[in-house]
Design a protein around this nucleic acid. Structure first.
Lengths: 259, 259
DNA sequence: TCGAGTTGTATAGATCAATAGACAATGAAA
DNA sequence: TTTCATTGTCTATTGATCTATACAACTCGA
């Protein structure tokens, strides 16, 4: 490898595949930032002309890509100086028996918080009823939450709880700011993650809105069931993560993290 | 909504986002087939005119999407009769302490096999050396494998083994057809999955080639470490899954599936 | 102050993506 | 056979995307 030029192994952009070049370049730059292979320590991108040459396109095409990422909040170009990146590496989100939302992200971000949108009561769909071990049509409470790190959304969760057992879970969650604390008010001292189903897909309109993504981005979706210490499921949740800001790590205990 | 029409929750294609409408529609149809929400029991798609109306585009645009999927092998249109789908639902790939490649897919597919490409010896990168607990630059064996179900690729794995401990692992794997059997020849009677890191991204050119994907498709990538019963890591592997053919399920043992 | 390096703006032409409408060709059922 | 539903082909038009070239505006260090 001879210095500048190729810098990496990344994908070459492809013509005539139904994805505009500027979007492919935007996705590639975003990925490069997430992987940490682009942009120096000061977070400065190579100049537009260099990027244009690297990707084999006109400078205007690179500019269109940068404009999209700037609108997304990932880059911010400064007239006469250069284009700068906001965050660099992906957050690591651990998954295991002891998975907690609030912990785990630990010290990876400077600032981190969770917005909870008031829960609403609704009738359980068959899928949710089955996951929670309830009769189809039982009343459940749906709680919407969004996690952010350094002001950027990194997760968007929708959770369902049995309305009989946890009638005011949404308020308790919002007050306490943490699910574990809210659950203690209902006598759940501890709990385990029983199963997590993971899929990935393109961001749809809702994802683009909730996670501030541009369409074409990739989201990871997890479907999780938490059980109390008696083994009864009490929470079913679907969480969407932006794939270029977050990665998941599954730790089997007994080996690595013994806790 | 009366019967046919909307069928699902997905939809809403977006204009002016740098992704051609025909590609969004192609991705949506593929996803719909994977989720099983499109196409009736005989695997027949709604007619082009109906799809055009549903997506709010011209029939030619739908035709472009179908042409792409036909080229990909997902659909096959028949003059005068209709357009037919090949496979329907996603495979479920379990992940946990007892994760094995060969098992788990079980009876989900009619036919299933693994191609193993002869392993090559190479020097460990720092990442691989660290994962295997070796000195950087140690000799390791790289084994490439591809899993298929019903003739369609569903996984593409690259694994590394310590060359000292497993000098002929590639041949043993290829002969036995199963990793567990190959490992027994080297005295590894049993092993556990210690950790699995999961990320998702767009398919690159290599993915498109290896997994027969069209660009714009989504792949899930796992980075896994297997340890023997003494807790020593002996295998590091990266596996790529096409996200519309496979989903992952993490089962914490002790709760749901006990073995 | 000057010049090199950078991002911002403008204009024009070429190619791709999407629409519109019309009709041909095939398969299946009345 | 006739009719209908379906996929296949053709032509023309509009707008989005990409290229090419030029120059303006801004920052920073010599």
């Amino acid at each position: 490898m001879t210095g500048a030029g190729t810098t990496g192994k990344r994908r070459a952009i492809q013509r005539g595949v139904g994805v505009a070049l500027w979007r492919q370049i935007a996705d590639d730059i975003r990925g490069g930032l997430a992987a940490g292979t682009l942009a120096g320590a000061e977070g400065r991108l190579p100049p537009e002309a260099a990027l244009a040459e690297r990707f084999g396109v006109n400078r205007h095409t690179v500019r269109a890509a940068i404009a999209a990422l700037a609108h997304e909040g990932v880059l911010h170009p400064v007239h006469g100086r250069g284009t700068f990146a906001r965050r660099q590496k992906r957050l690591v989100y651990p998954i295991g028996e002891r998975t907690r939302f609030s912990t785990g992200l630990g010290s990876q971000a400077r600032e981190r918080h969770t917005d909870i949108f008031a829960g609403v009561q609704e009738s359980a769909s068959t899928e949710i009823a089955k996951a929670l071990g309830l009769e189809a049509g039982s009343k459940v409470i749906r709680v919407e939450a969004r996690g952010s790190a350094d002001g950027v959304p990194v997760s968007r969760a929708t959770s369902w709880f049995d309305a009989q057992r946890f009638p005011t879970i949404a308020e308790a969650y919002a007050d306490a700011g943490s699910l574990s604390a809210a659950l203690r008010k209902f006598g759940v001292e501890d709990y385990l993650r029983a199963s997590t189903r993971i899929e990935a897909r393109h961001a749809d309109e809702a994802d683009a809105r909730d996670l501030r993504l541009s369409p074409g981005a990739v989201v990871i979706v997890t479907h999780a069931i938490n059980v109390d210490m008696k083994g009864d499921p009490f929470q079913y949740s679907r969480t969407r993560f932006p794939a270029d800001r977050v990665e998941l790590v599954v730790e089997s205990q007994g080996k690595t993290t013994v806790d």
